[in-house]
């Protein structure tokens, strides 16, 4: 019986990067997962939670919980940050009535690379790589919430290393925040930009052509900086790197 997953694309992917969400679907499908998508999805509520507006956040928490509760399928989010919102912070913005639903849903909620490595038990993608695609030099930025709030750190790196066409280039201070931080990026644009510029300098120094990460919001920030400065770097979500390496786009 194949694994069943309902994909919650997150508001960032739904509105800005639908192609990335499709990459996630295609990679999961390639790994034998049956993917469905609920039409009533929008946002997990994290931006409101992080800005202190917990009442507003709880509306979206309830929407998420109602939407998925009672189901059997796992819920996959291509973002460590949103996954942590569901798993760690929903309990902070809820009433007692919400707790049962939150526990049901959050026990089945996983970040994309966490799901592949821990739930599917796949850390080596070689068996899925039929022909070796063009070699690419990739460097990996560790998204803060994936690493520190979910404890997922080596898993995505293992996945990338297992891809034969991918050369993983070492980045200095890979675990240091890129400076996005949600509304922090616009409340303190100068600090956020200074942090981002340091991150970009470390990416450039790695010698990679492509920077990848598990969270599109980090990459949105990094990409905004490299686009402004015309730095010859490409940012790709980890699902896109995997999809490209599994030589899937030719089947489009």
């Amino acid at each position: 019986m194949s694994a069943k997953v309902s994909l919650f694309a997150t508001c960032v992917l739904n509105n800005f990067y639908p192609d990335v969400a499709f990459s996630v679907v295609r990679v999961l499908s390639k790994l034998g997962v049956d993917v469905t998508v609920r039409q009533d999805q929008t946002c997990c509520g994290q931006p409101f939670f992080n800005s202190g507006h917990w009442n507003d956040s709880s509306k979206l928490m309830r929407k998420f919980v109602e939407s998925y509760s009672g189901g059997k399928e796992d819920i996959v989010l291509p973002s460590g940050s949103c996954t942590s919102m569901v798993r760690n912070h929903y309990l902070e913005v809820c009433n007692e009535d919400d707790i049962g639903g939150i526990r049901d849903v959050s026990g089945r909620t996983f970040e994309f690379t966490e799901y592949i490595t821990r739930e599917l038990g796949i850390s080596d993608l070689t068996p899925f790589q039929s022909t070796i695609n063009k070699k690419i030099n990739v460097t990996y930025h560790e998204s803060c919430h994936l690493k520190r709030e979910l404890g997922v750190s080596n898993e995505p790196i293992d996945l990338l290393r297992s891809l034969e066409n991918v050369t993983l280039m070492d980045m200095d201070q890979p675990e240091v925040c890129c400076g996005f931080g949600g509304t922090f990026a616009t409340k303190y644009p100068e600090i956020s930009t200074a942090m981002g510029e340091e991150k970009v300098a470390n990416i450039v120094k790695s010698g990679a052509d492509i920077v990848t990460a598990s969270d599109m919001s980090c990459l949105m920030h990094i990409d905004g900086l490299i686009a402004r400065k015309n730095i010859p770097l490409k940012s790709m979500h980890i699902s896109q790197v995997i999809e490209q390496s599994l030589n899937m786009e030719c089947q489009k």
């Binding site: 739904n14 509105n15 639908p18 969400a21 499709f22 499908s29 998508v37 039409q39 930009t193 402004r228």
Partner: peptide, 29 residues
Amino acid sequence: SRESPTLAKKTFVDQWVSLDLDGSLRKKH
């Protein structure tokens, strides 16, 4: 200091719905 990301022409969910209806998603993988 940073370029804004670009809004998609159609949300992922809307794209998914139209794909799902004519079954073309399944052709994709």
